[in-house]
Amino acid sequence: MQSVPQLSGEFPAVPSAWHALPDEVQLTLSREALRRAAETLADHAELLASEMEAGTLLDQGGPDALRLFAAVVRATNRDGFATVGTA
């Protein structure tokens, strides 16, 4: 009997089921992950803009640029990735 290899000495390695998923499911999950990542970037840009406006962070013309960045991220990803359930 072979033992399961350890990762970082604490947790046993768990065989990935990713490759066992059908290509369509992998693609759907990947698109949802990208959509969520884009939304996270846009949210962080909005937060930074608000912090600059409030004077918490040094403002060098950044809030408008960050809001533009957030809008571009959202606009370019809105149509490109379908929303999937609650994954």
Rank of each mutant, 00 (worst) to 15 (best):
R78G: 02
E51A: 13
Q2W: 13
A65Q: 12
E53A: 07
T28Y: 03
P22L: 00
M1T: 11
Q2Y: 06
L68D: 04
L27F: 09
V73A: 12
R36Q: 06
A37D: 10
T86N: 11
A65W: 09
G80R: 15
A71C: 10
V14M: 07
A71R: 09
L41C: 13
A71Y: 05
A33R: 08
A70N: 00
G85K: 07
R67S: 09
V73Q: 10
A13E: 08
A65M: 11
L41N: 06
R74P: 00
G80Q: 14
P5E: 02
A65N: 10
T83N: 11
L7V: 14
D64A: 14
H19Y: 06
E10L: 13
A13V: 10
D23N: 06
V14L: 12
S3R: 06
G80F: 10
T86R: 12
D59P: 04
D43T: 10
T76R: 02
P5A: 06
G62Q: 04
S16Q: 04
T40P: 02
L68Y: 04
A54C: 05
E53W: 04
E10C: 11
S16T: 15
G55H: 03
A75D: 11
H19A: 07
Q26S: 09
Q60K: 11
L34K: 04
M1H: 15
L58C: 12
H19S: 05
G9P: 10
V73I: 14
E10N: 12
E53N: 09
D23C: 05
A38D: 02
D23M: 07
G85A: 05
A82C: 13
A38W: 04
E39W: 03
A49G: 07
L41H: 08
A75N: 02
A20G: 15
H19F: 08
V25P: 05
T76C: 02
E46A: 06
T56F: 14
L66Q: 01
P63W: 02
T28D: 01
E24W: 14
V72W: 02
G85V: 06
M52Q: 15
